[in-house]
Simulated scan of single mutants.
Amino acid sequence: MRGDFELRTQSGEVIDGGRGTVALCRCGLSAIKPLCDGTHKVGGFHASGGDRER
């Protein structure tokens, strides 16, 4: 995500993304969920379907 946004937990607490562009974890392996920390690369996660970014 890029730009002006605010992430919140299910209970409504603000999650600090730490910067203006963040990626959300889809693989479930990140140590800083809900944010992506790149662990999917070593975990071998690949999203199913759709176009992949190259």
Score class of each variant (00 low, 15 high):
1 M>T: 10
1 M>S: 07
1 M>A: 10
2 R>K: 13
3 G>D: 10
3 G>E: 03
3 G>Y: 05
4 D>G: 02
4 D>C: 12
4 D>P: 06
4 D>V: 13
4 D>A: 14
5 F>R: 10
6 E>M: 06
6 E>C: 13
7 L>H: 01
7 L>T: 08
8 R>C: 07
8 R>G: 04
8 R>E: 14
8 R>D: 11
8 R>T: 15
10 Q>T: 12
10 Q>W: 02
10 Q>H: 05
10 Q>A: 15
11 S>G: 14
11 S>T: 15
11 S>C: 02
11 S>Y: 06
11 S>F: 07
12 G>M: 12
12 G>P: 07
13 E>L: 09
13 E>N: 13
14 V>G: 05
15 I>Y: 00
16 D>E: 14
17 G>W: 09
17 G>S: 05
17 G>L: 08
18 G>N: 04
18 G>L: 07
18 G>T: 05
19 R>H: 11
19 R>N: 12
19 R>S: 14
20 G>W: 05
20 G>V: 03
20 G>K: 08
22 V>Y: 09
22 V>C: 07
23 A>L: 00
23 A>G: 06
23 A>S: 08
23 A>N: 00
24 L>D: 02
24 L>P: 01
25 C>H: 02
25 C>F: 00
26 R>S: 04
27 C>Q: 01
28 G>S: 05
28 G>V: 04
29 L>P: 00
29 L>K: 09
30 S>I: 08
31 A>I: 02
31 A>N: 14
31 A>C: 05
32 I>S: 14
32 I>F: 07
33 K>E: 12
33 K>Q: 14
34 P>K: 01
35 L>M: 12
35 L>C: 01
35 L>A: 07
36 C>T: 10
36 C>Y: 03
37 D>E: 11
37 D>H: 12
37 D>L: 09
37 D>V: 10
38 G>D: 01
38 G>E: 08
38 G>C: 13
39 T>E: 09
39 T>W: 08
40 H>P: 07
40 H>R: 12
40 H>A: 08
40 H>M: 09
41 K>M: 03
41 K>A: 13
42 V>L: 11
42 V>A: 15
42 V>W: 08
42 V>R: 14
43 G>C: 06
43 G>W: 00
43 G>P: 04
44 G>Q: 06
44 G>W: 04
44 G>Y: 10
44 G>F: 06
44 G>S: 10
45 F>M: 10
45 F>C: 09
46 H>E: 15
46 H>Q: 15
46 H>R: 14
46 H>T: 14
46 H>L: 14
46 H>P: 00
47 A>Q: 11
47 A>K: 11
47 A>W: 01
47 A>C: 02
47 A>L: 13
48 S>W: 00
48 S>I: 05
48 S>D: 09
48 S>G: 07
48 S>R: 08
49 G>Q: 12
49 G>V: 04
49 G>F: 05
50 G>V: 02
51 D>Y: 01
51 D>P: 05
51 D>W: 03
52 R>D: 12
52 R>Y: 07
52 R>I: 10
52 R>E: 11
52 R>L: 01
53 E>S: 01
54 R>E: 13
54 R>G: 14
54 R>S: 12
